[in-house]
């Protein structure tokens, strides 16, 4: 298993993400955004969290034009697995690899805390190690995680099993930290090879640091 972690100017979760994948036994490389091609055979490309290009214009809007993104798009088109975490998710939205858009959190605050999530659909590689309805605890850290999509596309996404994770409280009841439509925290594309989520699984890899539910998420890509 080899993972490529793309580094944009302003990315700041690249090292944690590389470490997290190494911790579960994968090989991981950094890929600088100026690269035009993927030079190795990768099983997964990760766009990690951070503030690529200082979030100028809109989060992820400028990173979309980095040279590496053409290669990532090609890779995804051929069925390669892509995971976008937080700012990486925003980049996937701006690149049209995933549907929808992000706006500022409803309460305008940057929210940084552990938050419970409910697994809505496990019929995909990313969440295959979970059961539907599982409640997991993963940190969130974002100012623009307020997911927006038109009603029609949203319905299609439910029908196609593209809605993967929703924010909730510890008992699985509705709790929406940022105003996202239907409290959505994570989605995938129709083909189920491109995944995006606002929570940070790479920050939930060890019980002494608050939780280890991220391990099972990342391990989905290994098996």
């Amino acid at each position: 298993m080899r993972v490529g972690v793309v580094v944009f100017p302003g990315t700041n979760c690249d090292r944690d993400t590389k470490w997290a994948f190494e911790r579960i036994g994968a090989k991981a490389d950094f890929i600088w955004h100026n690269e035009k091609n993927l030079h190795k055979k990768y099983d997964l490309i990760v766009l990690p969290g951070g503030f690529s290009y200082g979030d100028y214009l809109r989060s992820g809007a400028i990173a979309r034009f980095s040279p590496i993104m053409n290669a990532v798009k090609e890779y995804a088109k051929k069925g390669g697995f892509v995971l976008g975490i937080c700012n990486g998710f925003q980049i996937l939205l701006e690149s049209h690899l995933l549907p929808g858009a992000m706006t500022r959190n409803e309460n305008l605050h940057f929210i940084s805390k552990f938050h419970h999530l409910k697994v809505i659909n496990n019929n995909n590689k990313f969440l295959q190690k979970f059961n539907e309805g599982d409640i997991i605890n993963i940190p969130i850290a974002h100012a623009e995680g307020n997911y927006k999509i038109d009603e029609e596309t949203l319905k299609e996404m439910y029908d196609n099993e593209q809605i993967l994770l929703q924010y909730c409280d510890e008992n699985g009841h509705y709790l929406n930290p940022n105003g996202s439509i239907d409290a959505i925290a994570g989605i995938c594309n129709k083909e189920k090879n491109v995944f995006g989520l606002m929570p940070h699984p790479e920050r939930a890899m060890s019980d002494i640091l608050g939780g280890s539910d991220g391990i099972k998420m990342l391990e989905g890509f290994i098996s």
Binding site: T103, N105, E106, L108, G179
Partner: peptide, 13 residues
């Protein structure tokens, strides 16, 4: 501008 149906939290503040 944000579309009419999209909540504008900055505007609210």
């Amino acid at each position: 501008h944000l579309k009419a149906g999209v909540l504008d939290p900055q505007g609210k503040a």
